[in-house]
Amino acid sequence: MLLARGAVAPVLLPGEVEGMAVLGHQALKELLSHPEVAKNARHFTALREGRIAEGWPLMTFTTVAGMTTADGDDHRRLRSLVSSAFTARRVEELRPWVEELTDTLLDRLEREAVDGVADLRRHFALPLPMGVIGELLGVDAGYRDRLHGLTSVVVATDTGPEQAVAANRELVAVLSEIAAAKAEHPGDDLTTALIAARDEGGDRLSPQELVGTLLTMIIAGHETTLNLITNAVRALCGHRDQLDLVRKGEANWADVVEETLRWDAPVSYFPFRYPVRDLVLDGTTIPRGTPVLAGYSAAGRDPVAYGPDADLFKVTRTARNLSLGHGSHYCLGAPLARLEAGTALERLFTRFPTLDLAVPEAELTRHAGFVGNSVRALPVRLGPSAAYQPYEPPMAPR
């Protein structure tokens, strides 16, 4: 584990690019809110000097025009244009619809099962957040599988240059097509609102910012929650005692979500931040212009922050985690992700109370990249559905 090397450690990124990873909880918290750490790639020394090749698998993270690569006024402007869709009040208004979609997908999951076994990631954990963000953005259902396939390539860190360039070009083309259709035929959705929105100075989003914002929202709006639901189900199946605590009322589903975020973060190492001057964190100097990874997985297991049992999954734990960010770039969709994951878990384990993994945990194939943190598939054995359990008459008195 990288954390054993210290709270801040050097890493070698794809393409032999030198970087750093911040792994300790406190050091990461400081990095995420430090006033002299930027997100805009103009501060990335190696890129500015032309030492990053086209097709670098992390190029989209680095150069996409949107909130995740903006600083200061630009960041505030871009964030303000979408923030109203993700307030706690607006998210709570979505609850009945999220619950209805969850139940529909559970019906489908049961139909897809063969001999009681189904891929929960493919048939439930994926279509739930993709369906929600798709509806919010007004993206037709016919685009969603294609968008997931393309964004999966974009967020991977082990793709070759030709594949990375091709996926990025196709993704930009698809999103531009969606935006053009919305401009011609507006709807009651966030994409239409973004096209029409003006900031206080009267400026609209540029075409590049619009596509970048859509890209960011689609990736963040489904990949993170997809991994969160998948990882939470794995955790509960491997820790039945913790599931029992929820069923006995000693913890709730929100507690499960928070502990999963800490113990098995949906994003391991998120690119990039750049110190605008040499920066010292936890006694280690990070040179100006170095690409820095935010190490959420490592920080979640930091014993300094969470005690000697930091490696244990405990739903009664109360310490806060950083897995959805901190500071001005805190995840805008965090309330929605928590709603989706909590609803998914509660209704899944209520519907299928004996649900368990269909293969040993060690046989699950993990993603090869270091950004998204989960497994490629999650075969589960559903067990009897609580909605269809046969009636058993009471025992006759003796």
Rank of each mutant, 00 (worst) to 15 (best):
W97S: 14
E363D: 15
G289A: 05
R351T: 14
E392G: 01
Q208T: 14
M59A: 09
R317Y: 09
P287T: 13
D278M: 07
T157G: 14
S33N: 13
A396W: 06
G19Y: 00
R42M: 06
N227C: 02
P360E: 08
R234G: 13
I178Q: 07
K182M: 06
T159E: 13
A118W: 10
I178M: 06
A298K: 01
Y330T: 14
T284Y: 09
E92D: 10
Y274D: 06
G66P: 01
T316V: 10
E250R: 15
G300F: 03
R247F: 05
N321F: 08
A65R: 09
A235D: 11
E363V: 03
D71S: 05
P384T: 11
A196Y: 04
A299F: 03
A38G: 02
V174W: 01
L150K: 06
S374T: 11
N40V: 00
Y274N: 06
L355F: 07
A387D: 15
L171H: 09
D311H: 14
L137G: 04
P266R: 08
L364T: 04
G327R: 00
R320A: 15
A310H: 13
A232Q: 07
F124R: 04
G202L: 10
Y306P: 09
L137R: 03
E340P: 00
A294H: 01
A358R: 00
E110H: 09
Q389I: 05
R366W: 11
A181L: 09
H148N: 12
H222G: 10
A156W: 04
G149Q: 11
L336A: 02
R111D: 15
V37D: 05
R42D: 07
C331H: 06
R366T: 13
P384S: 11
A173P: 05
L348S: 10
D244E: 15
S297D: 11
R366Q: 06
H367Q: 08
E99M: 02
P291G: 12
P390M: 02
I195L: 14
E340V: 08
R347F: 12
S323W: 00
D244M: 11
R204D: 04
A85V: 03
L150S: 06
L120I: 11
A85K: 04
P287D: 10
T60F: 15
Y330P: 01
G187F: 05
T104P: 00
E49D: 11
L336P: 00
R48G: 10
E340M: 01
Y269L: 13
H185W: 04
E99I: 02
R169P: 02
R381S: 14
M1V: 09
A337F: 05
I286V: 14
T159G: 10
T191Y: 05
S176E: 11
A377P: 06
F61M: 08
G238R: 05
L261F: 07
H34L: 05
T354F: 04
L136F: 07
P308N: 11
R95T: 13
A341R: 04
E392T: 14
W56K: 05
L236Q: 09
S297G: 09
P353L: 08
V139R: 03
T45L: 07
R122I: 07
R301Q: 13
G19M: 00
G138R: 03
T216Q: 12
Y274P: 00
R51C: 01
